[in-house]
Design a protein around this nucleic acid. Structure first.
Lengths: 222, 222
DNA sequence: ACCTGAACACCGTTCAAGT
DNA sequence: ACCTGAACACCGTTCAAGT
């Protein structure tokens, strides 16, 4: 019997189909809903079939994360560095808003996928071409990424939705004793009455960092 | 039979004993090793006994996190704000280095424990007393915390231990193609040859933010 | 080479039962 | 009021067996 013409269940599953289905589950139902069994069910396959294409769940998550990183806007290595890095940071935030489960995993996972390495290379290249030393470029990128990860993760996990700030006032404020926590009480009230603009506030902190950075103010050149 | 003199197993378990044991497991064996069953075993008790003192695992984690926050250095509300906030940020980083599992959970958990609220109140108070508006104080604290969380989480999850930087050179460098990723290749080599000083690098980014902040440069006062 | 079913060693949590 | 054992509905992963 020739093995060339087989139209059974083989070869229906591919790594990219698995990643696509996994991303879909994580984005719509949350990362905690992503189990190997549920993923298999979504692909009309047994849980164990997946292990023919990925080593284990950790490997699957790495592949998913490199796919997310591919959405970052790649800095032009010869463009104006502040503008390039600002655009990359904003696109990272936007990407994380679309994949709320990603930053927590990205920060705690070793990802050496092609997209991740290309992003790191372009970001460093942009700074180095602007006159930063290797060490200074590394410190600058680290400061920017710290803000991007830290801000967006706080934003994503804030217990109250922006649209519900005013409604949250009546709910949370009584729990914040005006005597014990006067400043927190006042700040909460002020916060709730104000407008929330995530982009502007993100850009505020990013601007503080970018304003302070300069090629010659590096850490000790090495 | 009088119910007053009972020396059986009752009352041996307290919420604070549970938290203490849970912190010990998380700090020594990692947060993934903390299961209700293992925690119960460490306390010489059944898993279900724990549910008489905490609502569920999420509740337990919240209690653990408030305990961690109690290690943050509380800003003096009438002290010099830059110095106070710098000291608080550094103590947060040190606390996270002792509890590596904490920042990821802290950023994604609603904690309204007493220590958490006291920290927020003192931090905001320090800024407000320095002339910041409620809104400006909130933005300033957010920028500082973003850096503190983002930097420390990246630091904690960096795949290579500081002591193994040089050894990592021979291991990782061949995987970074010099043709495809020239800047990343060069930066990795430079990074490995340089010294790593986590405190100095953390303070670098923190300094950029603190230098840029000022009471009057707030977002639109409201 | 790829897919499968059964099994293993775990989870968090519910429930009814004890004292 | 507090502690327990058994059970439920899940996990990720191994393994031997199929094609």
């Amino acid at each position: 019997m020739p093995s060339s013409t087989q139209s059974d269940k083989r070869r229906t599953l591919t790594t990219s189909k698995i990643i696509e289905a996994a991303l879909s589950i994580a984005n719509t139902q949350g990362i905690e809903a992503l189990s190997m069994r549920k993923l298999a069910a979504a692909l009309n396959v047994t849980a164990m079939s997946i292990y023919n294409h990925v080593a284990n769940k950790e490997d699957l998550l790495s592949l998913m994360l490199d796919n997310v990183v591919s959405d970052f806007e790649l800095p032009d290595e010869d463009g104006p560095w502040k503008e390039m890095l600002r655009r990359r940071a904003h696109s990272m935030r936007q990407t994380f808003l679309r994949h709320p489960w990603a930053p927590t995993l990205l920060i705690s996972t070793i990802t050496n996928g092609a997209h991740t390495m290309r992003d790191a290379n372009a970001t460093l290249g942009c700074l180095i071409n602007a006159g930063f030393s290797y060490a200074a470029a590394d410190w600058a990128r680290n400061a920017i990424d710290s803000h991007t990860f830290g801000y967006t993760m706080q934003e994503l996990n804030f217990p109250v939705e922006p649209t519900e700030y005013r409604a949250a006032a009546d709910h949370y404020l009584p729990e914040i004793s005006k005597n014990d926590y006067p400043y927190l009480h006042g700040a909460t009230k002020a916060l709730i009455n104000g407008d929330y603009d995530g982009v502007t506030q993100f850009d505020f902190g990013l601007g503080l960092i970018l304003s302070g950075l300069a090629p010659d103010q590096a850490p000790d050149q090495r």
